[in-house]
Design a protein around this nucleic acid. Sequence first.
DNA 1: AGCCAGGACTGAG
DNA 2: CTCAGTCATGGC
Length: 216
Amino acid sequence: MTIYRRLLHRFGRRHWWPAKTPFEVAVGAMLTQNTAWANVERAMANLSRARVLTPRRLLDVPPRRLVRWIRPAGYFNLKGRRLRALVAWWVRRQNPVTATRQHALAAVRQELLSVHGVGPETADSILLYALGRPSFVVDAYTKRILARHGWVSWQARYDELQQVLMRRLPRNVALYNEYHALLVELGKTLCLKRRPKCHECPLRDLGALRLEPEAG
DNA sequence: AGCCAGGACTGAG
DNA sequence: CTCAGTCATGGC
């Protein structure tokens, strides 16, 4: 039994990313930085109700109103500016979903990282969940889970964690999609928060398992 | 009452 | 290049 299969069996498919369009995925990826998803949903609902959840409309929105709508997501002044930068890129790229399809993954990733407010996790979230590219998303949960089971050191940085995963897993968008979502679910619901206190974690023996989706 | 949430930028050393 | 400080709302 592998970790992936056990997580999938326990939690079922997560159906990520919870958004209607690739553009909404990108907006959500930005708003969810260090923020509970429930708060992001409120902000997204405000934008939706205001009918500005398209690249063009969102770019034309006055910063004051934008900040008011995204307030529930926290860091609203910061995220207002970052969101504009991201949307400006999206518009300049004229629908990156198709516009970047022929480009190398590393090139698109580099381009995203150059946008103000887009770090490695946000870039990979957009690549994977909006653009359908096989770039594994690493987050705080992923790091805690891998480090706690001794697969990486606690000092490991983002790129190292990502390489550990991508080197061992087939480059498959559907797999990366589900795997990251499952790791987040494990981190949220079980014993892998910053203060571990759960002594009855059904997955506490994960150390004996493998990362690979296939047994063998 | 704190602590935490699906991070990233900035400035100092 | 490393790293503490910063940003802010809402749930528990």
